[in-house]
Design a protein around this nucleic acid. Structure first.
Lengths: 98, 98, 98, 98
DNA sequence: TCGCCTGATAGTTGCC
DNA sequence: GGCAACTATCAGGCGA
């Protein structure tokens, strides 16, 4: 890929255009990589909080479930449970009144 | 569930201990939810960069491939070398410390 | 829930349809559980091979690395080539069909 | 790596030993790869059953949950629910009597 | 816009 | 009993 020489010409997909695309591409890649780096750092922080909680005697599995449920809409959760109950009933895993 | 706060009487699993655990639980949940919120915001930022790139004519699939490649790149070659070394070691072609 | 068996009356979600769905559900669950059982057996076989290898002095970590390498090997190089091609295409250095 | 010439000598970690290890390694790798192939085939079968069920109108998410629950010991499941309830109560997500 | 599919994440299991 | 590898689940992105 050639570097941009600062002047434009009328050639379609010219060397200049490619050089510009290259610069743009670099910028995009850098921005994304920076953001992903920060995102990974936050993921690490979250893991650390769970680890600390575990060290204090909390059940991390239950903790994660709580977080998940708080995120989930209540009605949706009830719907899920209704479907599950229907299936379990069909398999005889629950009694009619249950 | 969690640690005692030092002012409680010696009753095992006393009301004080339970209250402390409850406060700790709240704190943990809040910290995690806050961090996940920030993480989600970053994910949104990343999506936005891709969308903007796409609007500028970039192929997002290619972009993602480039990002992935750059992430793997170094670690990839390092793993290749690690595999070779471990393989040779397993066959007694290298000494343990080598 | 599922398809009608052709002999039922035209009542929507009739007792017949529900019974059919129930039978279908049972069949599905049984098939899946059977397949998972076989899958678990194979996983046990694999573990056994590793254990035997270890007993013969092989480094299981190295073995796993070798297996992983052989699995990636071909697909890896193919992906590398795909990335390069897509990258060049994204920068207009290759025509679509190329 | 040298091939095995069929004769033994007294050299520790001799070429013969290495050749034998090589043959053994090949055999192990082949066995594992064969088993993993079969395992992958079963995984594909399972995916297919789920896909078929989905095509017949079943909710695969609920289906997976049913399978999981049937695998899980009942008492263990009750224990999980008890822990969860305790946590949710502590966060005010459930009323005392609930 | 919806459904599919791949990539990221959480859970489980086996090993040390 | 903790850690690490592997597996299954889930959510977001892509194509029809």
């Amino acid at each position: 890929m050639a570097s941009n020489n600062g002047t434009a010409s009328n050639g379609a997909d010219s060397a200049e255009a490619q050089g510009a695309a290259k610069q743009q591409l670099r910028a995009i890649v850098e921005r994304i990589e920076r953001l992903e780096e920060e995102k990974a750092a936050l993921a690490a922080d979250i893991r650390e909080v769970y680890a600390e909680a575990k060290a204090n005697g909390f059940d991390t599995k239950a903790l994660r479930q709580v977080i998940r449920l708080r995120k989930q809409d209540l009605s949706e959760r009830q719907e899920q449970e209704a479907i599950l109950a229907t299936y379990m009933h069909a398999l005889g895993m629950l009694e009619p009144g249950e």
